[in-house]
């Protein structure tokens, strides 16, 4: 099944619970999005800059989340 790396998809994940960059990347594996790793990183970076999520450190790691 194909997964779309979209702003809406990222927003939904971050509204549900705080996630690290690695958690987010796991939601959009290259084999499911048909994007290269570089394209995935660039797209996620642009989306996160636009969403400007809240940040908090949990267990020593930076997590992003969105308040609805």
């Amino acid at each position: 099944r194909e997964v779309q790396l979209t702003e809406d998809a990222v927003r939904r994940y971050l509204a549900r619970k705080p996630m690290t960059t690695k958690d987010l990347l796991k939601k959009f594996p290259a084999r499911r999005t048909a994007l290269s790793s570089e394209q995935t990183v660039n797209a996620l970076a642009q989306i996160l800059k636009r969403l400007n999520p809240e940040r908090k450190v949990i267990g020593d790691k930076m997590h992003f989340f969105l308040k609805e």
Binding site: K22, L25, S37, E38, A45
Partner: peptide, 20 residues
């Protein structure tokens, strides 16, 4: 692989560095 995931996470964090 997990090392590729680590590399991608590091690249993403680097992209976001100014912003974070």
């Amino acid at each position: 692989s997990s090392s590729e995931a680590d590399e991608m996470a590091a690249a993403l964090e680097a992209e976001l560095n100014d912003f974070m």
